[in-house]
Design a protein around this nucleic acid. Structure first.
Lengths: 229, 229
DNA sequence: CGTGCCAGGTGCCTT
DNA sequence: AAGGCACTTGGCACG
């Protein structure tokens, strides 16, 4: 059974899960200190370190892939787990007072496919530009505007006027409108914001800036509908 | 030893960790399908579900706190784990073909303190506004501009001209400049961007918009220095 | 509950 | 490596 005391031999080879009584300190872009408590510690072979509590999606502390981990033992028998990352320089130090159980395994992602992403929506629009700009055409995708960022789609309408299209897969907010403005201003172009929904503020601001809103839900990517708004 | 076959009795009471041969499907804001493979499954009492592979900070699939979990058994002995979330409606379905080990425990966050945050930087600036705007004063913090968002700090310089200060704890980018512009435009005010560093694009754009840059590192919050730029 | 915005954001891709 | 940006972003605070 892959649970036992020799988990240290699995470092770099398996995903190790420890249930440990521990203190955690983090020093890097920010600083954190966590007093002694039982926590879930996950060590992945790619250098990822995750320290989870009883609640929440996010770990209490972590270290990303590529970090270097080491485990040492103090003279009085306590374990100390170090995880170090360069650029930015960040260190996690876990003092382990006790381990109730330690298990490991070699999980994998397996075949994995994710759909309904921003990329999918963008591709749909390129193929169905007529539904967004009747009589228009796509000039470029991921169009870089030097010093101003990268526009999702650059198109032109029937009259030849340039139009920047900014695509969001979730409700568009003020940030999305500001982003679109940055592109449209730089190109002296019109702007269309495509999203499944819009916050009230986004609607106001888009109106103020003269941008058009188009409602398009990622789940409606079929030959379906795109309702102008 | 808290590892064994009766982990299902711990649902809602402990954090459960399964090492399982499984298929995972996710349907919600996006859609994902993951073929059969060994994966690490974590079930927290707050409804959080995390499915981890051998690499990366992020789980392959997940469900946030507040989700409802249930485990059923098919006629041929396979387990199926359902996790459902409303608003947005999202469902994860895990078909479990086998479990190599199942362990649990009741971790906690314990005493935890994080410093060096955005809030810390903002407070430092309010206390040391003279270092940012010599002769100026703070008018308001978290100043809401209706329909345009919330400015970090609204101040005025020695001549009484309004200045919006946008604070970043990491390198400021185009997004930060756009955000500042949204505020400054709405108030017809000047703008100062405070950050530990700036991307090349952010420098260009800030110059174009007439914003001032001030370099301030979160780790130098002592009575230290704030270098205008 | 929606709106807005930070996060030690992370991850992906392109120059 | 730096820059730009999406993410099933998650999480928080406020009206």
């Amino acid at each position: 059974m892959p649970c036992g005391g020799n988990w240290r031999s699995q470092i770099g080879r398996s995903v190790i899960v420890l249930y440990a009584d521990s203190e955690v300190s983090y020093d890097g872009r920010a600083v954190s200190r966590a007093g002694r408590a039982w926590r879930l510690i996950i060590i992945k072979p790619d250098g990822t370190l995750l320290i989870h509590t009883d609640q929440g999606y996010q770990p209490m502390n972590w270290q990303p892939p590529g970090s270097r981990i080491s485990v040492t033992e103090t003279s009085d028998g306590k374990l100390i787990i170090y995880s170090t990352r360069q650029r930015p320089r960040e260190v996690i130090r876990v003092v382990v007072y006790g381990i109730e159980w330690a298990c490991w395994g070699m999980p994998s992602e397996g075949a994995f496919r994710l759909t309904g992403t921003h990329e999918d929506v963008k591709e749909w629009i390129v193929r169905n530009i007529q539904r967004i700009i009747p009589g228009g055409r796509v000039i470029s995708v991921e169009y870089e505007i030097p010093g101003h960022g990268i526009a999702d789609i650059l198109a032109e309408d029937a009259s030849g006027r340039k139009i920047v299209i900014e695509v969001k897969r979730q409700c568009a907010d003020l940030h999305a409108v500001s982003q679109l403005r940055r592109y449209a201003d730089a190109l002296n172009a019109g702007g269309i914001l495509v999203a499944p929904c819009f916050t009230s503020g986004a609607r106001r601001l888009a109106r103020e800036y003269g941008f058009q809103l188009v409602t398009l839900d990622p789940s409606d990517l079929s030959p379906g509908t795109a309702g102008a708004n």
